[in-house]
Amino acid sequence: MVADPTPRFTVRGTDGAFVKFGLDPQEQNLKEGKKPNSQDNRSGSDNSWGTLYKWEDSKMSEEKVKIAKGNYSAFYREMAAAINGKADLPVDPNDAAYVIYLIELAFKSNMEGKRMDVSK
């Protein structure tokens, strides 16, 4: 147990990392009973930002990055249209399968306490 908040997401690469604290602001809106298409996107909240760390010329740079506003409602509208044969799927099934692979790899990494190769 730790007293300080830990990142919700950390993505590390060979040239840097991206770190994001907190949940998607839409989640807090839903918890508060607001409609999914609420105009309150909490753009001023800490959850609306992430930090990109990049190695450049042997120095680490740090940049705050605004997170794109999510839209749960649009996803489900598009999914309904696809189910009804009126539109394409909002997410390519191959992309969805790869995300599941990455999540499973993250669980395996945690269980084994080591980094995993992310090649397909």
Rank of each mutant, 00 (worst) to 15 (best):
Leu30Gly: 00
Gly22Tyr: 08
Leu89Asp: 00
Arg12Met: 12
Ser119Met: 07
Ser119His: 13
Ala3Pro: 03
Asn71Asp: 14
Asp4Thr: 15
Lys64Pro: 01
Gly13Ile: 01
Asn110Gln: 12
Leu52Ile: 08
Leu102Trp: 05
Ser119Pro: 00
Leu30Glu: 01
Ser73Ala: 13
Tyr72Lys: 12
Glu104Arg: 12
Asp117Tyr: 04
Phe18Glu: 00
Asp24Pro: 02
Gly85Tyr: 00
Lys35Pro: 01
Lys114Leu: 06
Tyr101Ser: 05
Met79Phe: 13
Leu89Met: 05
Lys54Met: 09
Gly22His: 08
Asp92Phe: 03
Val2Trp: 09
Gly44Ala: 04
Asn84Glu: 12
Ser45Thr: 07
Gly50Phe: 02
Lys66Thr: 11
Glu63Gly: 04
Asp95Phe: 13
Val99Leu: 12
Ser38Gly: 02
Gln28Pro: 03
Pro7Asp: 03
Tyr101Val: 03
Pro93Leu: 02
Glu78Pro: 04
Lys69Tyr: 05
Ala17Thr: 02
Leu105Tyr: 01
Lys31Met: 12
Ala106Cys: 10
Pro25Glu: 04
Ser38Trp: 00
Asp57Cys: 09
Tyr98Asp: 09
Asp4Arg: 15
Gly22Lys: 00
Val11Phe: 10
Glu104Cys: 05
Lys114Phe: 06
Lys108Gln: 12
Trp55Asp: 06
Asp117Leu: 08
Leu23Gln: 13
Asp15Glu: 14
Phe75Ile: 05
Gly113Pro: 00
Lys114Ser: 07
Glu112Gly: 05
Ala74Asn: 12
Lys31Arg: 15
Leu102Phe: 05
Pro93Phe: 02
Ser45Val: 03
Gln28Ser: 10
Ala87Leu: 06
Lys64Arg: 15
Val2Cys: 10
Asn41Gln: 15
Met60Cys: 11
Met111Asn: 13
Ser58Arg: 11
Val99Ile: 15
Thr6Gln: 09
Glu32Asn: 15
Met116Val: 11
Leu52Phe: 10
Ser73Ile: 01
Glu112Thr: 07
Lys66Ser: 07
Ala68Glu: 14
Lys86Arg: 12
Arg77Ala: 14
Ser109Cys: 01
Met1Trp: 10
Ser61Tyr: 06
Gly50Met: 01
Val65Asp: 06
Glu112Asp: 08
Ile103Lys: 06
Ala97Arg: 08
Gly16Cys: 02
Lys64Thr: 13
Ser48Phe: 07
